[in-house]
Design a protein around this nucleic acid. Structure first.
Length: 754
DNA sequence: CTAGGGTTAG
C-alpha cells in the first residue's frame, strides 16, 4: 500500500455504510473555531486533547452506542488528533459489537502505523474484535503478533475460539497458556473461559481434568468459576456433580441459582427446578431476574404445570419483562406445552420484538396441537413480516404438517426449503418427512427418502418409519427399521414392543413369542410409564397400578364406578394396547390401572365440576386409554387434555383431535432417562410444594393482561380454588386483599425489580 | 486520567 493511500485512509478512516448516518460529530471540523464541545452525557470535550476524546469514546461505547463511538473516533482523526493506546480498545470494542470487520481492519491498520499493536490493551481488543467478526484466523494472527502476552490476551483468544465454535481449539489454547506460565497468572476469568469451552465439548474427562487444575490453583472458590463449573458438569451429563459444586459454593449469586435451576429444567427435572426456585426465594437472599423466570417457565412447560406457569407469567408482566424476547418466547412455549395454544397466541401477539425462535415456537406450538393450517398461517406471516426462516423453523413447519397430516404442504416445503432458502435438510427434517409420508401411507416413498439421505439416519427417522409400518401393517419394512433401531438405541425397549405389535397384527404369533424371549435375553428394562397432574401447586405422579398416593383407595373406587358407567355406555376394553405397552404377567390388571386413567380419576375427584383437566404422560397414550378417556370426558362433561410424548390429545364432547401416530414433539431421550433414574431411585413420587407461598402470590393480583388471558370460566375458577387453598395454608394473607386491588397485598408482594 | 478478557436463558 502506498503512503499516499495510507494517509487518505487515516484521515478519512471510515467509509463504512454504518457510518453514513448523521451524527452529532458530523459537524465537528477544523473550520469550527470552538475549542470545546458539549457531547452526549454532558461531557465537555477539549477538541485538541486525546484523553478528552478517549473519555467521550469510552462513554459512548459503554452506553452501547457503538456507531456514535466510531463517529467520535472519526471526528478526532479529522482534527488530526493522534490517537494513543487508550483510544483503540473502546473503538475496537464498538466494531466488535457491530460486527463491522471493515472498520475494525482500518483501526488495526492505524494502530499498526502508530506502532501500538503490540500494546497489551490494543492487542487483546484486536483479538476480540476479529473473533467477534467471525474471522478467527486473523484473531490468531493478531494474537501471534503480540510478543509479550498476558492473561487478558490469552483469555481473549480462548473466548475467540469458543465464539467461533472451536471449543477444542480453545481448550488447547488454555493448555498452552497454562504450560507457558506454569499456572501463575491464570486468573479466574481465564478459568471461566476455559470452563465454558469444556461445557461446549461436553466430555467428562476434560471437565474433570480442568477442575483438578483449578483446585490446585485455588480458583475453585470463586463464584464465577463455580457457576461455570456447574454448567460444564451439567453439559457432561453429570447433574449430581453439578449439584455438589452448587452445594459446596461458599458464595452464590443469582447466576449460580439461575444456572442450577436451568440445569434441572433443561434435563426434565422440573420438580427439582421449581423446588430450587422456592428455595432461592426463601433463603437465597438474591434477586431473581429474567433468566430465572425463563428457566422456570421451561420447567413448567416440561411438567405441563399450567397454573404455576400462569403465576410466573403474571410475575413476568409485573416485572415488565414481557418485552424481553427470551422471556416472551418462554411464555409462548410454556402455554403451548401446557395445552393452551390460544393463550400462547395471545402472548405471542403481545410481544413487540419477535426473533426467529419466537416465531418457530409459535409454529411448533400449533403443530404439536395438530393445527397444521394455523401453523402454516403463522409461518406465512413470518415470511412476510418476520426474520428469514432457518433450519429450526423448517423443523417446526414440517413437524406441523406431519402432525396434521398435510401431505402436499409438507412435500412442498421440504422442496422449497432446499430450493428457495438454500437449507440442506438435516436429520430432523428427514425425521419429519418420513413421519409425514409414512403416516400418509407412502411407506415405500419414505423408505426411498431414507436410502437417499446424505446424513446418517438416526433413531427418530427409523422410529418414524417403524411407527408407520405398524399403522399400515408393513412387516417387511418394520423388520428392517427395527433392526436398525436395535443398533442405534439398544437400551430402548419400545421398538421391541412395536415390532411385536406388528407381528401380532399380522397373526405371526411365533415371532411375537420370539420377541418376548429376545427382550428377556437382552435384559431389556422398560421405561416406566407415568402420568402426572398438577393440582394446587403440587405435581402428583402416578405409575401403573400405583398405590402410593395417599388417596389411592378413593381413586380406585371412583375408577371402578367410572368403568361401570363406561361399560353401560358401550365401552369395550381394547386389548391391542396390552400388547403395546405391557408384559404378559401384568396383563390382567394393566388395562384398568394405566397411569393416565389413575391421573384422570384423581383429577376429576379433586377439581370442581366443569374444570378442565391437564395430564402429562411420559410415553405414548395407548389405544385403550385413548378411547376410555374420550368416553370419560363425555360422561363427566369435562375437557381433558392429555399430553404424551408425541402430541396433544384434546378430549371434548366425546371426540378427540388426535390423528394417528407421529414423531415425538417432546423428544429427548436424555430427559426420559433422567426421569427413570428419578423414579428408580425411589425419590418422592408425589412431589409436594414445600413452600407454596411466595411464587404463588403472583396470581392474586394477576395483572390485567394476565387476567384477560385467563378469560374462560374454568380458568378463573382455577385461580379461585387456588386462592382458597392458599388461604387455608395461611400462605396467602388476607382474602380481601386477594379479591380487590387492595394495596396491602401489593405491599406484600416480594417483587424485585432488578 | 482514560482502556482489554468471563459465567446463566429459548
Amino acid at each position: 500500500m502506498t503512503p499516499a493511500k495510507l494517509t487518505s485512509i487515516i484521515i478519512t478512516p471510515f467509509l463504512h455504510p454504518l457510518l453514513a448516518a448523521k451524527s452529532f460529530f458530523s459537524s465537528v471540523s477544523l473550520a469550527n473555531s470552538k475549542t470545546h464541545l458539549l457531547t452526549h452525557f454532558n461531557r465537555i470535550v477539549d477538541k485538541n486533547s486525546v484523553s478528552s476524546w478517549n473519555s467521550a469514546i469510552a462513554d459512548l461505547a459503554r452506553a452501547g452506542d457503538s456507531i456514535e463511538a466510531l463517529h467520535a473516533f472519526s471526528s478526532m482523526r479529522r482534527l488530526y488528533v493522534r490517537p494513543d493506546r487508550s483510544s483503540f480498545p473502546c473503538a475496537l470494542k464498538s466494531c466488535a459489537a457491530l460486527g463491522s470487520l471493515f472498520s475494525g481492519q482500518q483501526l488495526h491498520l492505524q494502530a499498526f502505523i502508530l506502532g501500538l499493536h503490540p500494546d497489551l490493551f490494543v492487542a487483546s481488543a484486536l483479538v476480540d474484535m476479529y473473533s467477534k467478526c467471525r474471522v478467527v484466523d486473523d484473531a490468531r494472527k493478531a494474537f501471534d503478533d503480540t510478543p509479550v502476552k498476558n492473561a487478558v490476551v490469552w483469555t481473549s483468544m480462548i473466548v475467540g475460539y469458543v465464539w467461533n465454535d472451536a471449543a477444542r481449539e480453545a481448550a488447547h489454547t488454555f493448555k498452552c497458556f497454562f504450560a507457558e506460565v506454569g499456572g501463575f497468572e491464570v486468573d479466574y476469568v481465564a478459568a471461566v473461559s476455559a470452563l465454558s469451552a469444556c461445557a461446549r465439548i461436553g466430555e467428562k474427562k476434560v471437565t474433570r481434568g480442568l477442575h483438578g487444575a483449578l483446585v490446585k490453583l485455588g480458583l475453585e472458590m470463586e463464584t464465577g468459576v463455580g457457576n461455570t463449573l456447574m454448567d460444564a458438569y451439567a453439559k457432561c451429563r453429570l447433574l449430581e456433580v453439578a449439584r455438589k459444586v452448587f452445594d459446596g459454593m461458599s458464595q452464590r449469586d443469582n447466576v449460580s441459582w439461575n444456572t442450577m435451576i436451568a440445569v434441572y429444567a433443561q434435563n426434565g427435572l422440573s420438580a427439582e427446578a421449581l423446588e430450587l426456585y422456592t428455595e432461592m426465594l426463601r433463603t437465597g437472599g438474591v434477586l431473581y431476574n429474567a433468566v430465572t423466570l425463563s428457566a422456570i417457565l421451561l420447567g413448567c412447560a416440561h411438567a405441563g404445570a399450567l397454573q404455576m406457569g400462569k403465576c410466573i407469567h403474571s410475575q413476568v408482566i409485573r416485572m415488565c419483562l414481557e418485552k424481553d424476547v427470551y422471556v416472551g418466547t418462554s411464555v409462548v412455549d410454556m402455554y403451548c406445552k401446557c395445552g393452551r395454544v390460544e393463550m400462547a397466541r395471545k402472548a405471542f401477539n403481545r410481544m413487540k420484538d419477535k426473533n426467529i425462535k419466537s416465531w418457530s415456537a409459535m409454529v411448533a406450538g400449533y403443530g404439536m396441537h395438530g393445527r397444521g393450517q394455523e401453523a402454516l398461517e403463522v409461518f406465512d406471516e413470518m415470511r412476510r413480516f418476520g426474520p428469514k426462516p432457518n433450519h429450526i423453523t423448517f423443523v417446526s413447519v414440517l413437524a406441523a404438517c406431519s402432525h396434521a397430516g398435510l401431505l402436499d404442504e409438507g412435500r412442498h416445503w421440504f422442496t422449497a426449503m432446499q430450493e428457495d432458502y438454500g437449507i440442506e435438510p438435516e436429520v430432523e427434517h428427514y425425521g419429519c418427512m418420513v413421519d409425514l409420508l409414512g403416516r400418509g401411507g407412502c411407506i415405500e416413498e419414505a423408505y426411498g427418502l431414507i436410502k437417499g439421505m446424505r446424513v446418517k439416519p438416526d433413531f427418530m427417522v427409523w422410529g418414524a418409519l417403524l411407527s408407520a409400518c405398524r399403522v399400515h401393517k408393513n412387516v417387511k419394512l418394520a423388520e428392517i427399521s427395527a433392526r436398525k433401531l436395535f443398533e442405534l438405541d439398544p437400551k430402548n425397549c419400545g421398538y421391541y414392543v412395536l415390532l411385536s405389535n406388528v407381528y401380532a397384527d399380522a397373526g405371526r404369533w411365533r415371532d411375537v413369542e420370539k420377541m418376548r424371549v429376545l427382550m428377556k435375553q437382552r435384559k431389556m428394562v422398560k421405561t416406566p410409564g407415568y402420568s402426572s397432574v398438577e393440582l394446587k401447586g403440587r405435581i402428583h405422579v402416578f405409575l401403573i397400578g400405583d398405590r402410593r398416593h395417599h388417596r389411592h383407595e378413593e381413586i380406585y373406587e371412583y375408577l371402578d364406578k367410572l368403568t361401570v358407567r363406561m361399560q353401560e355406555a358401550g365401552y369395550v376394553p381394547d386389548t391391542r394396547s396390552v400388547l403395546h405397552d405391557v408384559d404378559e404377567e401384568e396383563k390382567e390388571t394393566a388395562l384398568r390401572v394405566h397411569s393416565e386413567k389413575l391421573a384422570v380419576a384423581f383429577a376429576i375427584l379433586s377439581t370442581a365440576p366443569g374444570t378442565s383437566i391437564q395430564i402429562v404422560k411420559n410415553l405414548r397414550v395407548c389405544c385403550d386409554c385413548h378411547s376410555a378417556i374420550k368416553l370419560i370426558a363425555k360422561l363427566v362433561d369435562r375437557e381433558i387434555v392429555v399430553r404424551d410424548s408425541h402430541r396433544f390429545h384434546h378430549f371434548q364432547d366425546g371426540s378427540c383431535s388426535y390423528i394417528g401416530h407421529g414423531i415425538p414433539c417432546f423428544r429427548s431421550y436424555q430427559q426420559l432417562k433422567v426421569h427413570t433414574n428419578f423414579l428408580g431411585k425411589k425419590r418422592r413420587l408425589i412431589w409436594s410444594w414445600k413452600s407454596a407461598s411466595l411464587p404463588w402470590w403472583g396470581i392474586q393480583n394477576s395483572s390485567k393482561a394476565c387476567r384477560e388471558q385467563c378469560s374462560t370460566v374454568s380458568e378463573s375458577r382455577d385461580i379461585i380454588t387456588l386462592l382458597v387453598f392458599l388461604r387455608r395454608r395461611k400462605a396467602a394473607g388476607p382474602l380481601k386483599g386477594i379479591r380487590g386491588g387492595d394495596s396491602h397485598v401489593h405491599s406484600c408482594f416480594l417483587f424485585f425489580n432488578p
